[in-house]
Simulated assay, not measured.
Amino acid sequence: MSDRLPRLTPDQLDESQRAVYEGIAGGDRAKGVQHFPLTAEDGSLNGPFGIMLHSPGVGAALQELGSTIRFRTDLSARIREIAILQVAQAVGSEFEWWAHERVGRAAGLTDEELMLLSLGSFSSQDPVEDECAAFCANLLRSSVITDQEYEEAGAVLSRAQMIDLTVLVGYYRTLAQLMAVFDVGVPGNEQTPVGVPRHAH
């Protein structure tokens, strides 16, 4: 974490904090291949997850929403990671980029695609991917979708996909803001890739 919030280890948690911890470290995120470490060597949670423990009521709802976005929508893994990386780039979130570049590579994003995402200029030959990226870019640019943008998105995307993308952008913006306020970056000696904007703390 940072000097603003202490890192909480498992032995320091009360019952409500432990429930949040178990939801993160023992939930869907912990299943299968781990593309980035959820916990440090002392068992404390990395990134936004450690922040959630300090407000377990909100943290429980946030981590459940995040798990739903990651594992229980109809968005493809590539589309989900493209959208998350668009948020990371737009708001300059070091941790989000560091973590989801790894997940994105596992979902099939190429070096060239990641470079374009880092520049905020991603496009795709796949019409659904391309429209999802355009929809997210519009949200990140102005926080609103015009009637024309809505019609263009609706010609390619389902209502559920537009809802899922809107919630995804809001959720990862929230995590980025939490990490900016509490000065939380990438863990340990890990490095954020060159070209990714960084928050000024």
Rank of each mutant, 00 (worst) to 15 (best):
W98K: 03
L13P: 03
G23K: 00
M162H: 06
A83E: 02
G50A: 08
A88L: 09
R18D: 13
A160L: 12
T9V: 13
L109W: 06
T39Q: 15
R173P: 01
L75F: 04
S142I: 06
P48T: 01
L38T: 07
N189M: 05
Q125P: 04
S142E: 13
Q86Y: 05
V196A: 04
F122S: 00
V103F: 06
A134I: 03
R173M: 14
E96F: 03
I79F: 01
S143I: 08
G66E: 01
D126S: 11
R18G: 09
I145S: 06
D126W: 10
M115P: 02
E96W: 01
A40G: 06
N189K: 10
A134C: 06
G154F: 04
T166E: 10
T110Q: 12
I82V: 15
V186N: 02
I84Q: 03
S142Y: 08
L140E: 10
V156C: 11
A61L: 11
D147E: 14
N138L: 12
C136N: 02
P6Q: 11
V186R: 05
E112P: 04
A99I: 01
E41I: 10
Q125G: 14
L53V: 08
I24S: 00
D74Q: 10
I69W: 00
R105P: 07
E81S: 09
R7C: 07
S93M: 04
G188H: 11
L119M: 14
S76P: 07
A77Q: 08
D111H: 15
L85T: 03
L178N: 06
E64S: 12
M115R: 14
E131V: 07
T9Q: 11
H199A: 15
S124C: 07
D3L: 12
S123A: 15
A155T: 13
G108V: 10
Q191V: 14
H100T: 01
V58W: 09
E96Q: 12
G47Q: 02
V194Y: 05
E41L: 13
S121K: 15
E101N: 09
G23L: 00
R7P: 01
A61S: 12
H35S: 09
